[in-house]
Simulated scan of single mutants.
Amino acid sequence: MLVIAVAKKHPNKHVIDYESWLPRLISWIVSMLFKYNLVLNDLTLYRKDFKNADLSTASTIVCYLFPGAMVVLEEKLKQNVLKNITIASNTFALPSYKPIKVIKLKDFYQTPIYVYHWQPK
């Protein structure tokens, strides 16, 4: 559902979501219940693994991945020649990089959002 909030906040951006079947189904159901116009917001939902995705044109990556997947994402970012991009991660941090900002949500858990500015080394 995070992807819907991102698409609504940035209606002029093309938002692409890679999800496993359950989160994708939940996003789709929520979008139908609240009648979000996903086409208007240019939101594309894919049921596939981000590890095989081409991130070379990304300007922003928003993720909610478990710690092991954050390691995989970091390795993918290191292996690809990517331009400077912004990464926002819900709950879990990249293991080897210091975020430029940590935002604490005003929820029960004070969930951290880690924000990075990725620059190829």
Score class of each variant (00 low, 15 high):
Ser89Ile: 02
Ile87Leu: 10
Met70Asp: 05
Lys35His: 10
Arg24Asn: 12
Ser56Met: 05
Met70Asn: 09
Trp118Lys: 01
Phe92Thr: 02
Met70Leu: 05
Asn52Asp: 15
Lys76Met: 01
Thr91Cys: 05
Met32Ser: 12
Lys35Trp: 05
Asp54His: 01
Ile16Trp: 13
Ile26Ala: 11
Ala7Ser: 14
Ala5Thr: 09
Thr60Gln: 04
Pro23Tyr: 10
Lys78Trp: 08
Val81Met: 08
Pro67Ser: 02
Thr44Tyr: 10
Ser20Gln: 14
Ser56Arg: 14
Thr60Pro: 04
Lys78Thr: 07
Gly68Pro: 14
Phe50Glu: 03
Ala88Ser: 14
His117Asn: 15
Thr91Gly: 02
Leu45Trp: 04
Phe92Val: 04
Val71Gln: 11
Leu2Ser: 09
Leu105Thr: 05
Lys8Gly: 13
Gln79Asp: 10
Lys121Trp: 07
Asn37Ile: 06
Trp28His: 14
Lys106Pro: 02
Tyr97Gly: 07
Val81Arg: 12
Pro23Lys: 09
Asp17Val: 09
Leu105Met: 11
His117Gln: 15
Tyr18Ala: 05
Val62Arg: 00
Val72Gln: 13
Val81Ile: 07
Pro67Lys: 00
Val115Trp: 01
Lys98Gly: 09
Trp21Glu: 13
Leu55Asp: 00
Leu25Thr: 09
His10Ala: 11
Val15Gly: 04
His14Phe: 11
Arg24Leu: 13
Val39His: 13
Ser31Gly: 15
Ser59Lys: 08
Lys13Val: 09
Pro11Gln: 06
Asn12Asp: 15
Leu33Glu: 02
Tyr64His: 07
Thr91Asp: 06
Ser89Asp: 10
Ile113Phe: 03
Leu105Ala: 11
Val3Tyr: 11
Ser31Thr: 11
Lys35Ile: 08
Ile16Leu: 15
Lys76Ala: 00
Val62Thr: 08
Val39Ser: 13
Val6Ser: 04
Ile4Glu: 00
Thr57Tyr: 06
Lys121Glu: 15
Val6His: 04
Ile113Arg: 00
Trp118Cys: 01
Lys13Arg: 14
Asp17Met: 15
Asn12Pro: 12
Asn52Cys: 02
Trp21Val: 10
Lys76Arg: 04
Glu74Asp: 10
Ala88Asn: 04
Phe108Ala: 08
His117Val: 08
Leu33Gly: 12
Leu45Asp: 00
Arg47Pro: 00
Ala7Pro: 01
Ser96Lys: 06
Phe108Asp: 10
Lys8Tyr: 12
Lys78Val: 05
Tyr116Phe: 10
Ile85Val: 08
Ser59Ile: 03
Trp21Ser: 12
Tyr64Phe: 13
Ile29His: 02
Val71Met: 04
Lys83Leu: 02
Lys35Tyr: 05
Ile61Met: 01
Leu82Trp: 08
Met70Phe: 04
Leu94Arg: 01
Asp17Ala: 15
Thr86Tyr: 03
Trp28Tyr: 14
Val102Gly: 09
Thr57Met: 05
Thr111Trp: 01
Ile103Glu: 07
Asn37Asp: 15
Thr57Trp: 07
Asn12Trp: 09
